[in-house]
């Protein structure tokens, strides 16, 4: 397999597969650029022309409405032509290989593929086999990475707290299966977070996670003490029951963000969640849109971040 580099020889982004290994300057530039689109949007300037004549194909092998919609909207606001393909996993297993799917769609002169697939490494695979000049944007591959989610999380924190560097973070919940957690951890590390904690029962903590520079907690109250940012992760209920957790109620009691736990957080601390929320599981229902919650800001930032990434990859060089 051909080794894939996300940056070209001049250091410009040519694919976005993972936040791991990207320099702080690249991350900061993407966040600044997203801020620029947010500012423009506030002034009623939602439509931009930098991707006019470019073709973006959303290639989703996993069911998704929310994420696909934000990618679609981002591409359209940059004036790209957008094609949405929802490929059921079964149709590829019937015949066409992923490689053939890629080559067929490439022949339609696509400039960028936004790919979501349940196999870790899928985005790397497409990037390794894509024709020169065809960009791959990872919209989530297995448990591996979800870099635009990571960026929007970084952006949201920076908006509220003014910085990332020096802050303490705690990620709570299903770390094991979470690409959101992995991308957040890489981004936070690169931008100088003071401390990154992960809190979950041992069944949901992957082996060797400390090698990513995090501290593991099984006592959420200890984990949440003094943190500036709480990042809740979504539990996939169907997957969890019996196998990883005895019950959702027990998880909520031991790890859920209850009013009691929230009351002990520092006054300035914020609460994040990638959505969709399981009310009464990860978080007590009425706190989802409470004063500490930045969950809706995350959604809004998602579009701006995806515009920033697409523009930096396909748009004119700054």
């Amino acid at each position: 397999m051909i080794a894939v580099s996300q940056l070209d020889a001049e250091g410009h982004l040519q694919h976005l597969l993972t936040l791991e290994g990207l320099p702080a300057a690249t991350l900061t530039d993407l966040l600044d650029h997203a801020d620029h689109y947010l500012d423009a949007g506030r002034q009623g300037d939602k439509k931009h022309s930098s991707l006019l004549g470019r073709t973006v194909i959303n290639l989703f092998f996993e069911a998704s409405t929310r994420t696909r919609t934000t990618f679609e909207l981002a591409a359209k606001r940059l004036s790209a032509d957008v094609l949405n393909l929802q490929v059921a996993a079964s149709s590829t297993s019937k015949g066409e290989t992923l490689f053939d799917t890629l080559k067929t769609l490439e022949a339609m002169q696509a400039d960028m593929f936004v790919i979501r697939h349940d196999a870790s490494g899928a985005a790397h695979f497409f990037a390794a086999h894509a024709a020169p000049g065809v960009a791959i944007l990872n919209a989530g591959d297995g448990r591996h990475a979800h870099p635009t989610q990571g960026l929007l999380d970084l952006l949201t924190v920076r908006q509220r707290m003014g910085r990332i560097a020096g802050l303490k973070f705690c990620l709570v919940g299903d770390i094991l299966h979470s690409r959101v957690a992995r991308s957040a951890i890489h981004g936070l590390r690169t931008l100088g977070a003071a401390e990154i904690r992960v809190a979950a029962p041992p069944t949901l903590i992957p082996a060797g996670i400390d090698a990513l520079g995090v501290q593991v907690f099984h006592d959420v109250d200890a984990a949440l003490s003094d943190v500036d940012v709480v990042m809740l992760l979504r539990l996939q209920k169907e997957r969890m029951l019996g196998a990883f957790l005895p019950s959702l109620g027990e998880f909520h009691r031991d790890y859920g963000l209850t009013h009691q736990r929230a009351a002990r957080l520092p006054e300035h601390a914020i609460v994040m969640h990638p959505g969709p929320i399981n009310r009464g599981v990860e978080i007590e229902g009425d706190m989802a849109y409470g004063a500490r919650s930045v969950i809706l800001e995350q959604v809004n930032n998602g579009i701006a971040v995806r515009m920033a990434v697409m523009d930096r990859i396909l748009g004119a060089r700054p």
């Binding site: 297995g142 448990r143 082996a207 060797g208 996670i209 090698a211």
Partner: peptide, 13 residues
Amino acid sequence: HEGATATRLGLSP
């Protein structure tokens, strides 16, 4: 193999 590499790459251990 279950370990830091599988965790980093998100591969089932």
